[in-house]
Amino acid sequence: MCVRRRREWNTKSGAAPHDGGMKIRTVALAGALLALAACEGGPQSALAPAGTDAAQIARIFWVMLIAAAILWIALNGLFAFVTRIHPRPISRRIAETLIIGGGIVLPLILLGTLLTWGLRAMPDQRAPGDGLTVRVGGEQWWWRVEYLPADGGPPVRSANEVRLPAGLRTDIELSAALVIHSFWIPALGGKMDMIPGRVNRMSLAPTEPGTYRGQCAEFCGLSHALMALNAVVLPADEFDAWLSAEAAEADPPDGPGADLFAREGCGGCHAIRGTEWQAQVGPDLTHVGGRTSLAAGILPMTEEALAGWIRNPDAIKPGAEMPGYDHLSPEELTTLARWLMELT
């Protein structure tokens, strides 16, 4: 009856009554598929895994998606069959078989299997590491980073960037200062919350060297969306060389840059190892010039960006604790930025 009536509409108007809706849906679907395609291969894509854990999660995603699609098509196909293709009464026995089989037994088996399979992956995501531990602490809105070398050497302090050796599993210990954050580098692995007052453990086993983007994944205040970080995966031997260099003290050149740093009281918040400045309020700047990004993953590490940041951090990252230094002349800002860039 329904079918016939719809056909009548079609003949009268020359188009289905919900044609506009269909178009919108088609465009929306195409848009969603394009957005999905755009994710593929990006530096922050869970669908372009560069590590064992992310590959496992991507596999789970695809299997679940395909299973859901099959279920959706089967259910709607069945629905179309009984209402459009074969709209006749069916026997009670067949109806009960459909309800019990399709409504209870099949979902139980399918969902039970998928749940079991998905749960089995969880311990792998926290498998013990091969020796190196990286401690990451969430601040508003930046990251404290500390490397505890496999050989038991002293911790190496850094900030706003995580470097990991490829082909090895690294333990990650997560904590937070004041509010909850969440540590997530989609291309390398799953996400885990960082909770004040406790240490959450996870581990990452990157396989492909490269630079990937991480993002705080738990709302943590005004500039939550601007709390990112780069994860740089290096071949194991390069990583060892980098960590040795990172562990070394800075050798900042004397001159107007150092004088400005001292005069403006930057050392009251920031540490530069090897100097008298050892404060731990803000990010460690010992090798700041060697990092791939500035202000926790949101600016390129360039002289101009650094000068702009020092002049007015609040304009770039609203709510940032660091005061602005807009009383410095453009030349002074450039001098200070150039000096900081030399801390590699």
């Binding site: 749940l115 079991t116 749960l119 089995r120 969880m122 311990p123």
Partner: peptide, 8 residues
């Protein structure tokens, strides 16, 4: 299931 499959 979690008790069976998540060991730590």
């Amino acid at each position: 299931l979690p008790a069976l499959l998540i060991s730590t």
